[in-house]
Write a protein that binds this DNA or RNA. Sequence first.
DNA 1: TTTTGAGTTGTTCGA
DNA 2: GTCGAACAACTCAAA
Length: 453
Amino acid sequence: MAPAVLWFRRDLRLADNLALVAAAGGGGGDGVVPLFVLDPALWRPSGEPRRAFLAGCLAALDEDLGGTLLVRRGDPAQEVAAVARHHSAEVVYVGADFGPYGRRRDEAVGTALRADGRRLVAAGSPYAVDPGTLENQAGQPFKVFTPFSKAWTAQGWPEPAPRPDVRFVRDLKGDVIPAAPTTTATLPAAGEAAGRLVLDQFLDAKVQGYAEQRNRPDVPGTSRLSVHLKYGTVHPRTVLARLGSSRGESTFRKELCWREFYADVLWNRPETSRRAFNPAMAGMQVDEGPEADRRFEAWAEGRTGYPLVDAGMRQLQAEAWVHNRVRMIVASFLVKDLHVDWGRGARLFLDRLVDGDLASNHHGWQWVAGTGTDAAPYFRIFNPVSQSRKFDPKGIYLATYLPELAGLPPDDRHEPWRARAKGADLGDYPEPIVDHATEREEALRRYAATRAN
DNA sequence: TTTTGAGTTGTTCGA
DNA sequence: GTCGAACAACTCAAA
């Protein structure tokens, strides 16, 4: 008998891993060959935080596998086929990938394997309910979150799968596990054990207050699980099995459902990673050219003169992560105050975030921009000052990321231009690059013009 | 087929 | 300071 190959992608764990369970059952009696392929199409000179986290996950996985993880660098179709051929493995097991690139890649790998008389078998996915599974009574994909969430809950999901007892084998020489690229951001600990710890801490200390605390960037009230869900060091099934029915737990379950909703939307409409989900909104007037570029740069560097926006963008640089509410606020500012196309902001987020996920990121941006599913009403425009006062009342988050403002009395941090007018020294902290009230009116005008067409 | 109810996350204004 | 209404109309989902 021949061993089975288990090709890891974004499921870098051994617990609750359906592809591993399937590999153990199919040929795994003769061992499982754990493989990871460094795909040059994904391992590019950008997205340093994500690559650094991935490198950490691979090192941790290799350790959990007793040093047997086989890493190969190259085209997945060639590398996977070569490894399967070497081991005479009939089947290569994977967790399904539902992203636009992953679909094409897996198609090519499956073709290469079949040409060799072998098969690519998908078992499980990064989701509790696979994208493309749920449809409304008309047989169509859902376009609105709430009906989707009802169907999602009704569909249910299996209990977490126990880790099977298999022998991992490796006799091929591979490439070394890549070193983490240098990044100035302080990143979370990588790997399955780190993910389990984050989940334990969330359930022990934070989930009961989650419904209220999750909106507060000044307190650690969110789960911090996004990066682990992205790389599969924690599976949502594992999380869902541990959630009860309290208010905080129900609120968090809904957030997990949003992740699955957006994955489903992207599966059904893969072109929406580049284009508006709602074509009627694609014609919105956006600013381009040197002045728009300067404003985009100021936004990206955290130098807009609006403290909550700048604090968010500097948190992005410092930690490769931003609190969810602040993500909405900085996104709203770029799209509605600076009138820049949502795609530019979405791409920058994906490049800089350690938890950057195409479906959640781009559809979150589309929601803010009003081009997506359940689009925000056009008149819903975040006021960066009132959001700051409401969700960071003592200016603690502002002071953490904006040292120029840390010396101000807490209340003055929300509107530093007032403190400066009174003579306070803010160093080189900029004046607001635009006037929010003016740009809000401009955004409303553009939405009205789009609707009229 | 037609109808009905509903739709993540907000802001402003005026009483 | 607090509260409710207005902001517009459209699409989706389901009965």
